[in-house]
């Protein structure tokens, strides 16, 4: 009997145990689970599950290009906007209300400088996201691991998980369209950005483990 782990939230499906509360009998092989199975904890598609190996060999990352000098790239208006809105939150936590307001106003200024897009479809988002998942995360993880930068590694773990979940949602949306959201609520975790589709929130965010009062519902207007 094998085990399969959700790469988003870490839930593990054990073939020996099955999932009786969802009508999957103990001993049900992964292949025999219904195709529309989603992670019972975070709602991710079965395609993001990975088989758990007893001893998973750690791939040896030897980057030759590391000491190649990279000069610091300038921040774009969009990045500056996110930087300022994050500093606003930092001020809020220190009860610096006036500084918080000023940082939010700067964030709005930079946001207004972000160029508008001509296209209007979710496929364009999916395309950019796929590049993150196939290229940018592995590169960033390698660089951050080499420098033993714990803060960077933590941020990368969270946002890679949130991105995989977003990717699986976009794939489902491409197939099902608006019916995907028909009889369900939609939430976003205020801390890590995890998107949850479902009516019963988990006790804690499956990605960043914050209590669920920090997870906000996105309404329909």
């Amino acid at each position: 009997m094998r085990k399969f782990k959700c790469s988003i939230c870490g839930y593990t499906y054990d073939e020996a145990a099955g999932l009786p509360e969802k009508g999957i009998a103990p001993g049900t092989r992964w292949e025999d689970i219904p195709q529309d199975f989603v992670c019972p904890l975070c709602g991710a598609l079965r395609t993001v599950f990975e088989e758990l190996k007893e001893t998973s060999p750690i791939p040896a990352h030897t980057s030759q290009e590391d000491e190649h000098f990279e000069s610091l790239r300038e921040l774009t208006p969009g990045e500056l906007s996110a930087l300022c809105s994050n500093l606003a939150k930092g001020c809020e936590k220190q009860h610096l209300t006036e500084a918080m307001d000023l940082f939010y106003q700067l964030a709005d200024y930079y946001k207004s400088k972000v160029a508008a897009h001509s296209s209007q479809n979710f496929e364009d988002i999916a395309e950019v996201l796929k590049y993150d998942l196939s290229e940018s995360y592995s590169k960033a993880n390698t660089v951050a691991a080499e420098k033993a930068d714990r803060g960077a590694l933590r941020a990368l773990v969270w946002s890679e998980k949130v991105s995989r979940m977003g990717n699986s949602l976009l794939e489902r949306y491409a197939k099902e369209g608006n019916t995907l959201l028909e009889n369900t609520k939609l939430y976003v975790c205020e801390i890590c950005g995890f998107i949850y589709l479902g009516n019963d929130l988990p006790e804690i965010c499956p990605v960043c483990k914050v209590p669920n009062y920090k997870i906000s519902q996105i309404g329909r207007r």
Partner: peptide
């Protein structure tokens, strides 16, 4: 419904960008 889904994606990405930049 399209707006709702798009707003969730926008918010999720803003939060990730904030955390990465931070």
């Amino acid at each position: 419904v399209t707006r709702q889904f798009a707003e969730a994606i926008a918010k999720s990405n803003r939060l990730m960008a904030e955390d990465l930049i931070r």
